[in-house]
Amino acid sequence: MKNKVAMIHGAGGAFLAASARKSDLARATNETQRSSKLEANHLMDDTNIARQDDLEAINQTLLDYIEGFYDGNEARMESSLHPELAKRIANLDSASGRGYLAEMSALALTQLTRKKADRPTPAAERVQEIAVFDIFENAASARVTASTWIDYLHLSRLNGRWVIVNVLWEMKAGQPFKPYW
């Protein structure tokens, strides 16, 4: 699946988006034009707009992350992650009723991906919509919408390559949280 990469401009600046569907880009463009409040939350100052090679490298890192997971490709997943990655989800303990953060490390995520190698996600069930919201110097913020969950990611350029350092994720409506690790 080839992703489309676009720079979406609004009244106050621009934000970067990469998506697997043309309709998502059109919707994002329309939403940007309709709501300056939304724009304020997603805009990059024009002086900080990343070079195209940064956007392409970040997009590739995010594709290695989601496609690596779907395919059970441990090497692609591992290449996209910083070894000290923290992937967290807020959850509710059914016994106590108290909220807590469930956390997964880079090692746990890589091992989980390896376990999927013999049962990759079928193509018809895959969703991989990518939006890069902001890039400044060696830091970037993005979202990956997957089949049953949404990830909000922070990336950093370390030693010349972009890697994911933090992920806060949430299950889509109607999808139960199942600790996979």
Rank of each mutant, 00 (worst) to 15 (best):
A142H: 06
M104S: 14
E84R: 15
G68Y: 02
R51Y: 11
T113N: 05
F177N: 03
T121A: 12
E56G: 00
N59W: 07
R143C: 09
S19F: 13
I8T: 02
S79L: 01
A140F: 07
Q60P: 02
A86E: 09
D45M: 02
E137Y: 10
F69K: 01
R161Q: 01
M44D: 12
F136H: 13
E170K: 10
D53M: 01
L55T: 07
V167Y: 05
E67P: 00
A40L: 14
A108Y: 02
V163P: 00
R51S: 07
K116L: 11
F177D: 00
A6V: 01
F136M: 10
F133S: 11
D118G: 05
F136W: 11
M104V: 13
K115V: 10
A50K: 02
T113Q: 10
T110W: 05
A117S: 06
D134N: 14
W169S: 01
E31L: 05
V5Y: 04
V167I: 11
L158Y: 04
S105H: 04
G72P: 06
A142S: 15
K4V: 08
S19Y: 14
A102Y: 12
N138G: 15
N91K: 14
F133G: 15
D71E: 03
E125L: 14
A142D: 03
S94A: 15
R126I: 02
L43I: 07
L43D: 06
Q33N: 04
L16H: 02
E74F: 07
P83W: 07
A140I: 05
M7R: 14
N3H: 06
R119V: 08
Y70V: 01
G97W: 11
I135N: 06
R161T: 08
I130R: 13
R76D: 09
P120R: 15
A28E: 10
G10R: 13
I89S: 10
T47P: 00
D71Q: 14
S23Y: 01
R161C: 00
A6Q: 11
E103D: 10
S36K: 15
S36Q: 12
I8C: 00
Y100W: 08
I58T: 14
P120K: 08
M1C: 04
L112Q: 08
V165W: 06
L38S: 07
E103R: 11
T148F: 03
L112G: 09
A14F: 09
E56K: 10
A108G: 13
L109H: 02
F15S: 05
M77N: 00
L101W: 12
A40S: 15
V5D: 04
R21D: 09
F136I: 09
